[in-house]
Amino acid sequence: MFCYSGYVTQKILVAIGETIKKKLEVEETELGKTKKVFSIFVEGVQNVIRYSADSIGESDELDNEVRYGIVTIGSNTKGITVQCGNLIFTKDVTRMKERVDLIAGKDKDELKKLYKQQMMEGPEEGSKGASLGFLEMARRAGYPLEFSFEEVSEEYTFFCINAII
């Protein structure tokens, strides 16, 4: 349905987001479902904007920094799929897996509880922005999120989130 690979900024997120909403509207997707796809897409891409290890610009200057990532929106027999991928530092994989494992195997009520807990606690140390993003994605998805880590070099690992709505 849609694939974007390149540097991602908030402006690009808005542009792709509008396109996705229009496309789903044309296909007469139910409003509730469209909202969930959009929500997962926004959280996934904002995660790339915040955390991708592949960037241009000064990493200290938030607004000048541009991060690289891949986003695909498609469909399979289960529903609409949203995939977001980006490079992370291989040294961060363990920490990332720990965060992801918190979400794995949780049902909707448990996710809701975690979400609330996370909102009260505030952003994690060393994290730019809310770590609520994955939880939000997990709550909106129709199936458990799939996370994959593929080491591409000693320095970098490709991290990918796959959601089905």
Binding site: Q46, M119, L132, G133
Partner: peptide, 13 residues
């Protein structure tokens, strides 16, 4: 509100 992201949710709280 018709949509808000997770960091806006934190502010709303």
């Amino acid at each position: 509100l018709t949509y808000f992201n997770s960091s806006s949710a934190r502010v709303l709280m």
